[in-house]
Design a protein around this nucleic acid. Structure first.
Lengths: 143, 143
DNA sequence: TGATAATGTTTCGAATTCGAAATATAATTA
DNA sequence: TAATTATATTTCGAATTCGAAACATTATCA
């Protein structure tokens, strides 16, 4: 193939998916970045800020802002690490956990209902192709 | 499949691709939105603002800003339509066309070199899956 | 140990993005 | 044709995002 159609299609799919998720999440007064952080902590018990940055796709300067906002909303706790005083441990507060217990199953169901247009095999192939592209980006970077 | 891994992978692939493109484009003092508009005009001769909005994935309020910036940089011309005075016709200026004549082939080559980790068949399947997802979002919206 | 480099995080100012309301014009309809 | 509705675009203020520099602490190394 010679053209860039794949990129256009990738961008469109991403964008409509993102908008879909955004609308789902906005109802709870969260934006996508905030939800990403909560979701990461929901699955991981606790993470340092760096740990979250590595999971969620947000640069560190933005992450400070997002975390501050989640602390203000009382969905997460931010505790200075005793081992490494540069570092902070993040975890869900009780409110945060309650929220996610409510939101997450619905959120998951909504997204699955979109993804279920693909049969098992198509979804696996999609994943593989996207992972390949991700890796290819790294290889092709800086030349 | 029951989990959301596909979404995670989609988001990661999109993000690394976007970052890759951004770095490529930043060298020319453009951001991704601006480049998207230029690219659309490069292929289409001319478009109304609404026409561009439908091509590029940017809401109208942001588009005004992007277009204003491209006019300032003297890469596009914005001319009020004589048929419909609400509307404006956008087209590349000579500078804009020169720029894209320079940038676009390299840009295209860079992206193709990433995509070329996929063989023809994989790329076609990827496109089909992503298009399916895009359509599925529309179907599953608002329920 | 003291100096230097590396790591984790925040601050800053600027750029970008957004949704909602406003504006201007055109199309429709009564 | 006047009134109403629809369409194209901009304006506004606020939220978000960013990169670069600063800061604090820890690790390394001479």
């Amino acid at each position: 193939m010679k053209d860039l159609k794949t990129i256009t299609i990738l961008f469109r799919a991403y964008n409509s998916m993102e908008k879909f998720i955004k609308e789902d999440i906005m109802k709870y007064g969260l934006n996508v970045s905030e939800f990403g952080v909560l979701e990461a902590l929901y699955h991981k018990k606790e993470l340092s800020i760096k740990g979250v940055i590595d999971k969620v796709l947000v640069p560190n300067s933005s992450m400070s802002y997002v975390i501050e906002s989640l602390v203000k909303k009382n969905y997460i706790l931010k505790i200075q690490s005793k081992i490494d005083k540069r570092s902070y441990v993040l975890k869900l507060s009780d409110d945060g956990r309650d929220l996610l217990d409510n939101i997450f199953p619905i959120h998951k169901k909504n997204i699955r209902s979109v993804l279920n247009v693909l049969d098992e095999n198509e979804e696996v192939l999609l994943q593989k192709a996207l992972i390949k592209i991700g890796k290819s980006v790294i290889i092709n970077k800086k030349d």
